[in-house]
């Protein structure tokens, strides 16, 4: 029983959920029962009228229901999920690569210039989604630009503006390690700066950088969601002024949430809940993955508190057994 409890469930659930999401992102459009332009025609089935908006679980053909115009929600999210995942992961790769590269090197400087710190502080004060809002607002709504150009543009700007915060946290970690005695020993032996960074500092940070990577994906999705609430959808917004309708061109999940936001006040709230729940599942699976990895790594280096705290980690440290004890 004890062994059963010490399994890192968080990690395995996270891995399983993420695998499912990636599968859906790759094969989504092939599984989808309808295309995104198919609409449900009003018809009589067994004496009942079936017509849009159809609620979830009412019809086998439209498992998650349709929106007000009869488009299938299930197909919509299957088409959209690849945009959400690919965009967020691309941004994270770019910003983590650039940020950790610069951060590792800046961490080995003896003194960080004052203006860098001042810039970091100033930058962290302004919410990132606001910067993106100003960049995207003039070009996103009813844009004449191809939606791939808009996505590319979003990826570039979102990566650049989030690099400073990554540099800042990697820099602090790298600097902390740079103070250790084994670095001093390496320096005495004549190791160059590059060797110290890649052979001594980076291996110590591998695990925390991996966790940071996964958590940053969630941050990017959160950013896309915040923009979507402001009616800025990644890949372009279609605005129909006659009914005040905002539509996402790419059907990206955060965009679907944003465009269905007004449904919260009506009986068709499920149009909002379907993409919202999926977005929740996406973020939770990445968080679970990150937390599972954290537990996995942390249980190895864990310290024991002297007073009662209410947040003891459940996992026991697994240490390598080099030789068996004889007298137990």
């Amino acid at each position: 029983m004890n062994k059963f409890l010490s399994i890192n469930f968080t990690l395995y659930t996270g891995i399983a959920l993420t695998a499912i999401l990636i599968f859906l992102a790759v094969f989504g459009p092939f599984i989808a029962p309808h295309t995104i332009t198919d609409t449900l025609r009003t018809s009589y089935v067994d004496g009942k009228i079936i017509g849009p908006p159809l609620e979830p679980f009412m019809s086998m053909d439209y498992p998650l229901g349709t929106d007000r115009w009869g488009y299938d929600l299930f197909s919509m999210i299957l088409y959209g999920i690849r945009y959400t995942l690919v965009i967020s992961i691309t941004i994270t790769v770019i910003k983590m690569a650039a940020g950790s590269f610069l951060g590792l090197y800046i961490g080995t400087w003896r003194k960080v210039p004052q203006w860098i710190q001042a810039f970091e502080n100033a930058w962290s004060y302004i919410p990132l989604f606001l910067i993106l809002f100003f960049f995207l607002a003039p070009i996103s709504v009813n844009s004449e630009v191809n939606s791939f150009v808009l996505i590319f543009y979003f990826i570039i700007i979102a990566s650049i503006i989030s690099i400073p915060s990554i540099i800042s946290s990697v820099r602090k970690k790298s600097n902390e390690i740079f103070k250790s005695t084994f670095i001093e020993a390496a320096q005495t032996l004549g190791a160059s700066r590059h060797r110290i960074v890649w052979r001594h500092v980076f291996p110590q940070l591998k695990e925390s950088l991996l966790i940071m990577f996964i958590l940053e994906i969630v941050q990017v999705i959160a950013l896309m969601g915040q923009l979507a609430l402001m009616k800025i959808f990644i890949g372009g917004t279609i605005f129909r002024p006659d009914n005040n309708i905002y539509l996402s061109i790419t059907k990206e999940i955060a965009g679907l949430v944003g465009s269905a936001r007004e449904n919260i006040y009506s009986h068709t709230a499920y149009i909002l809940y379907v993409p919202l729940v999926l977005l929740l599942i996406i973020t939770i699976s990445f968080s679970l993955l990150a937390n599972g990895l954290k537990n996995h790594f942390q249980s190895t280096y864990q310290r024991t508190p002297w007073i009662k705290t209410s947040f003891e980690p459940k996992l026991k440290p697994k240490r390598k057994v080099y030789a068996k004890l004889k007298n137990k």
């Binding site: 001042a118 100033a122 100003f134 070009i139």
Partner: peptide, 26 residues
């Protein structure tokens, strides 16, 4: 000194942000 730089950065950032919508066009 650091605080002064910080204020300067924030000031420039705000000016830049406010100007973005009139800079970017299609």
């Amino acid at each position: 000194m650091k605080i002064l730089q910080q204020v300067l950065f924030i000031f420039l950032l705000i000016i830049f942000l406010a100007a973005i919508p009139s800079i970017i066009e299609i």
